[in-house]
Structure formats: C-alpha cells, structure tokens
C-alpha cells in the first residue's frame, strides 16, 4: 500500500516537472502573469485609488469581491468551529 502511494506520488511529480518545461523562467518580466493585467494595477494605483501600496489597492479595491468572499470563508470557518466544539456548561 505504501509502495502504491509512493508510486502515485512519483508519477504525479514527474508529470508536474514535465509540465514546468513550458513555464516561463524565474523572474521573466514578459511572462503572461507579469504582462497581462498587473502593469495596469502598478501604473494606475496612484491615479485611481490614491494608494501607493499596490497590494492594498488590489486587495480591497480592484478585487474587493474576492476579499469579501475570503472574509466570508473565514467567518464561516469560525462559526463552524463554534458550532462543532463549544459546549455550554454555565447555563
């Protein structure tokens, strides 16, 4: 069973390493991730949001919906923890 798991892991790892041959090099300024939408965030963050920190402006302004979803996720996690674990003995 452990051998089977090890084999599955090695196969998956080999497939993933094979897929990195098509990935852009480390620090490539022309890679799709760096050339598609992020230059606009960096260049326009001061003009559009008056926030020098691009991470903050993307987090709360450009992608506010995403952050609202994440906040709801951790809210739900806390409620689930309370519902599963909390036992009231005082009342």
């Amino acid at each position: 069973m452990k051998l089977f798991a090890f084999l599955a892991v090695v196969l998956t790892g080999a497939a993933l390493i094979y897929s990195t041959f098509d990935m852009p090099d480390w620090g490539d300024t022309t890679s799709p991730a760096n050339a598609h939408v992020s230059p606009r965030y960096i260049e326009q963050t001061l003009n559009e949001t008056a926030t020098p920190n691009a991470v903050t402006s993307v987090l709360a302004d450009y992608r506010g919906f995403d952050t609202l979803g994440e906040t709801t996720v951790i809210f739900t996690a806390a409620i689930v923890c309370i519902m599963l674990l909390r036992t009231r003995t005082d009342d």
């Binding site: 991730a33 760096n34 992020s38 960096i42 691009a54 991470v55 993307v58 987090l59 992608r63 995403d66």
Partner: peptide
C-alpha cells in the same frame, strides 16, 4: 509594489507583480 512618492510616470518593470501576493495573502 509600493509606488515611491513623486513618481509620476510609473514604470511597471520597476515593481514586482502585486497580484500573486494579494491572492496568497
């Protein structure tokens, strides 16, 4: 990716990509 003050024409090559940092944060 924190834009320096008084930098009117911002060059995107000077700052690393903020998007993966936001997603991973």
């Amino acid at each position: 990716p924190i834009i320096r003050a008084g930098d009117e024409a911002v060059n995107a090559a000077q700052y690393i990509n903020p998007l993966p940092h936001v997603l991973m944060l």
